[in-house]
């Protein structure tokens, strides 16, 4: 079930918006395509990103995937638990954010709702952008 409390990108990221704060993560489809996740490279608190920037890297044994932010902003928190237990992302991708962000701008990158994202997966059946 794709949760409908949040928005999605075509690159398989999710974003949970709450006013000027946002949480970013990767979708269930993304974690399944990657397989067993073994490492997550996160940015530092205070780093700033423009929409479309790569802000994290998720590694499995045989693949690696960049994670892009659909919104511009400054990192306010990172999910440190993933450093030691990257497999949490396989277990519960929608409960594990990668970063929290103070939103500076939302523009440019198309965001889908849950139904739209599900339809996108069915249509494309492509692996996440690597």
């Amino acid at each position: 079930m794709t949760p409908d409390d949040r928005k999605y990108t075509k690159d398989h990221e999710w974003v949970l918006l709450d006013g000027q704060h946002a949480e970013l993560g990767i979708t269930d489809h993304a974690q399944r395509e990657l397989g067993d996740i073994v490492f997550v490279e996160l940015p530092a608190v205070g780093d700033r990103f423009a929409a479309g920037d790569r802000f994290a890297v998720v590694e499995s044994v045989k693949a690696v995937s960049n994670v892009y932010t659909p919104i511009a902003g400054e990192i306010t928190a990172v999910n440190n638990a993933l450093e030691n237990e990257p497999e949490l992302l396989n277990g519960a991708p929608y409960e594990q954010f990668l970063v929290q962000l103070r939103v500076e701008a939302i523009n440019g990158i198309e965001l889908l709702d849950a139904a739209g994202y599900d339809a996108h997966i069915t249509e494309s059946q492509v692996v996440p952008r690597a």
């Binding site: 073994v38 490492f39 590694e59 499995s60 044994v61 693949a63 690696v64 960049n66």
Partner: peptide, 13 residues
Amino acid sequence: TLQAREQHIRREK
């Protein structure tokens, strides 16, 4: 191990 760092997976990155 740690092959995801390497060129055959990460290619230009």
